[in-house]
Computed example of a mutant assay.
Amino acid sequence: MKTISVKLSEDTRSRLERIAAEEGTTPHALMVSAIEGELERREKRSSFYQDAMQARAEMIASGKAYDGKEMIAYLRARARGESPAKPKLKSLKTLMQRKP
């Protein structure tokens, strides 16, 4: 395992040591856990963004999408335990011409 040096302010170092002691761990273990957690969070965010961009590209390519108001009503009904019919895909052109 390679070593990396991190310079911390006195305040940050004090907080790190205090929290590590409270949790019964070492400052090193707390830093490793925090870094791993942040990296995982950022990787998930990046993956979510890439999935969204892919879905957007597919929607534009197909020229079809769900009406937002219909989808919200559908999801609310599902949340109430109902079994509504799933909204139908509509032409993007039609949806874009609709008045708000």
Rank of each mutant, 00 (worst) to 15 (best):
M1F: 06
K2H: 08
K2F: 05
K2Y: 03
T3S: 10
I4Q: 09
S5Q: 13
V6D: 01
K7P: 00
S9A: 00
E10L: 03
T12C: 04
R13G: 01
S14V: 03
S14K: 12
R15V: 03
R15Q: 08
L16I: 08
E17P: 00
E17D: 14
R18I: 07
R18M: 09
R18W: 08
R18A: 13
I19S: 02
I19L: 14
I19F: 03
A20S: 00
A21V: 00
A21W: 00
A21P: 00
T25K: 07
T25L: 03
T26V: 08
P27V: 06
H28A: 09
H28F: 05
H28L: 10
A29W: 13
V32Q: 14
E36T: 05
G37S: 07
E40D: 11
R41F: 10
R41E: 02
E43L: 14
K44G: 00
R45P: 00
S47V: 10
F48W: 03
Y49N: 04
Q50H: 09
A52F: 09
Q54K: 15
Q54A: 15
A55Y: 08
A55L: 14
R56C: 10
A57K: 15
A57V: 07
A57M: 13
A57Y: 06
E58R: 13
E58C: 04
A61Y: 06
A61S: 13
G63Y: 04
G63C: 07
K64S: 05
A65P: 02
A65L: 02
A65W: 07
Y66V: 01
D67H: 00
G68E: 11
G68K: 03
K69S: 12
K69A: 12
M71E: 11
M71D: 03
A73Y: 03
Y74P: 02
L75V: 09
L75I: 08
L75W: 15
R76A: 04
R76C: 04
A77R: 11
A77Q: 09
R78T: 08
A79Q: 13
A79Y: 08
G81V: 08
G81S: 04
E82C: 10
E82Y: 05
K86V: 06
K88V: 11
K88H: 11
S91R: 04
S91H: 03
S91N: 14
L92T: 01
L92E: 03
K93C: 01
T94A: 14
T94S: 11
L95F: 05
L95Q: 01
M96C: 12
Q97E: 15
R98Q: 14
K99M: 11
K99F: 07
P100A: 13
P100F: 11
